[in-house]
Design a binder for these strands. Sequence first.
RNA 1: GUGGACGUAGCUCAGCUGGUAGAGCACCCGGUUGUGGUCCGGGAUGUCGCGGGUUCGAGCCCCGUCGUUCACCCCA
Length: 416
Amino acid sequence: MSEQKIQAPKGVSEYVPDRSNSFELVRNALIEPAKRAGYQLIELPIFEDTELFRRGVGESTDVVSKEMYTFEDRGGRSITLRPEGTAGVMRAVIEHGLDRGQLPVKLWYAGQFFRAERPQAGRYRQFYQVGIEAIGLDDPAIDAEVIAIADAGFKSLGLSKYRLEITSLGDLSSRAAHRVELLKFIETLDLDEATAERAKLNPLRLFDDKREEMKKAMLSAPLLMDYLNSESLEHFKMVTKYLDRMEISYVLNPRMVRGLDYYTGTTFEFVHELLGAQSGIGGGGRYDGLMQALGGQALSGIGFGLGIDRVLLAAEAEGIISEDAFVSDLYIIPLGDTAKEFALKIAKDLRSAGKTVEIAFGDRGLKGSMKAADKTGAAYVIVLGESELESGTVELKHMQTGESSSVKIASLQQCL
RNA sequence: GUGGACGUAGCUCAGCUGGUAGAGCACCCGGUUGUGGUCCGGGAUGUCGCGGGUUCGAGCCCCGUCGUUCACCCCA
């Protein structure tokens, strides 16, 4: 009688071999450009005080109002599994006084995030992101560089079927002016109950409605872009100028909507063409009031979050990723117990010299072991038997050509 | 949260109008005793997601449940 199988919780994304190789490749590719731009790792807890997200992300957002994994810990504290990265980073920056040194503070992170949504292709309850934050200066050149870093990650993977959309959400005064006009406009529309409810929470949301009739109705809606004050407009123009200079192509999307309340000014999104409804592979923007809202000084910041799961899906959709990432330099087949002892020792020494070495375990016979060696894709194979142990010499077989040569065990390292 | 589709060996799937399960790939063993990828032969494998119900009898019908998937919503 076997026990009932336990399944993974609903909607989590898991990566097991061989696909995990692709996952690792994607994650590292997305991190690398940030490191090269001088960003440093910040490793943070996966759960935080619930209040952090209420204040940081915004009470009115869907993320906070209905998608958080919140629970009480044993001390009666309200804890929430992080639904996004920026709020936690800001909390840590303030708590550790990182903003007291030279600005901007430049940080990167990678890890899993949690949102209790209905799962769908590219949308999971536990998902992975790589993100960066540049805090403390509102130089538009930083905005451009942040965008360039994200773009470089996608490009290094070979992605091409995506586009960068950017806009500016302006500063608080620009937004307030626009909001008045937008609300006036929305009043003239005949909305169903659910849509009216959404409009109440965030009128900008209506720009994102997928229904044709709504798209049409919103065509004549007042655009935030047209309400930017001179400062905001100037900042945005500089950002696009820098992007042009770096030859990063983008499309202006004055109807872009973001789901987190803290965004101000420069805002962007990377959209992939081959993905389904969940086509955003990354996005981010500037946030002016966030640090202050969390009890820190009034510094601005900008950052992005890139979805590793979705970038992997996109890379697979473009057919630019292969799973066979792991290949050993040498595969050792020991015949007999004494040989096994030597195999372990040889493998250990070669590994500490930087070689990737595998051993055939389980006494399965030479033929089976050769098959196993073949499957791992190892470059070379040696068989360790009595005669080899006596002579201290092995036949080093190159698997692709099938040719082999006699090599002293002591000098294996130089031959791999 | 709302609506639709789906859930059979590790994987991809077949299974006619209900009669207690199959293919391909993968896996293991062997093809004269120490050398792989091809070929040939042999083999193991499933509480047909789970729980109820209808029926003489259910993988096929009904209900529930869990999960997957697609769209909405939202977003990475």
